[in-house]
């Protein structure tokens, strides 16, 4: 409908100047006398624009676009590389942690062993010392007992001598008493 309306208007518009009567007025959009000027200025301005756009401005825009897309690609690359590095670092950390744990275990083990050995030697030494002292004490006890036994003999002899003297009134020699007792 719109196009039909347009066509009507065009016809009306085209008819009007001709019907105007006075000076024979050319329908402006088809005015042949201006064609050279129109063509000349159109080609001039169009090719100036074409030259400037194709030589200067469009390369600038495409450069910017390419730079941006390559920058984005680079950034993505860098991000994935960093992620990989982070993963590697984590792995290395875990490995180091495991190593440290193993080493700490070893140290603890050897320390425990050396401490145990030390304790054992000290115990041994202490045992030996204790045994030696016990021996010495036993020897002294034996000595003291022997002395005490010896004393008991002489005391008994003296007591027997005194008893014999008191009962019989005769004195007996110590040697007699001793032989009599044994």
């Amino acid at each position: 409908m719109l196009s039909a309306m347009k066509a009507n208007m065009m016809m009306a518009a085209a008819a009007k100047p001709a019907g105007g009567g006075d000076v024979e007025k050319v329908f402006a959009p088809f005015d042949v006398s201006y064609f050279p000027s129109q063509i000349f200025w159109l080609l001039l301005s169009f090719f100036v624009l074409y030259f400037l756009l194709s030589r200067i401005f469009l390369p600038r825009i495409s450069e910017t676009l390419e730079e941006r897309s390559s920058r984005i690609a680079d950034d993505l690359d860098a991000a994935s590389r960093m992620q990989r590095e982070a993963e590697e670092a984590e792995k290395a950390y875990e490995r180091a942690l495991a190593d440290a744990k193993a080493k700490a275990h070893n140290v603890a083990e050897t320390t425990r062993q050396s401490v145990d050995a030390e304790i054992a030697t000290e115990l041994e030494a202490a045992d030996a010392e204790a045994a030696r002292q016990a021996e010495a004490a036993e020897a002294r006890i034996r000595q003291v007992r022997a002395k005490a036994l010896a004393n008991i003999e002489s005391v008994a002899a003296e007591a027997a001598q005194a008893t014999v003297e008191a009962l019989t009134g005769k004195s007996v020699t110590a040697a007699t008493v001793k032989s009599a007792l044994n």
Binding site: P36, F40, F46, L49, E63
Partner: peptide, 30 residues
């Protein structure tokens, strides 16, 4: 040939000028 500068030619120049101004404005900083 009559290659006179007309109001049409002026608008062609204005059109080219506007496009170039836009391009200068938009590719200045990049």
């Amino acid at each position: 040939f009559d290659l006179s500068f007309t109001n049409s030619a002026l608008m062609m120049v204005v059109t080219v000028g506007c496009i170039l101004a836009w391009m200068l404005l938009s590719t200045g900083k990049r």
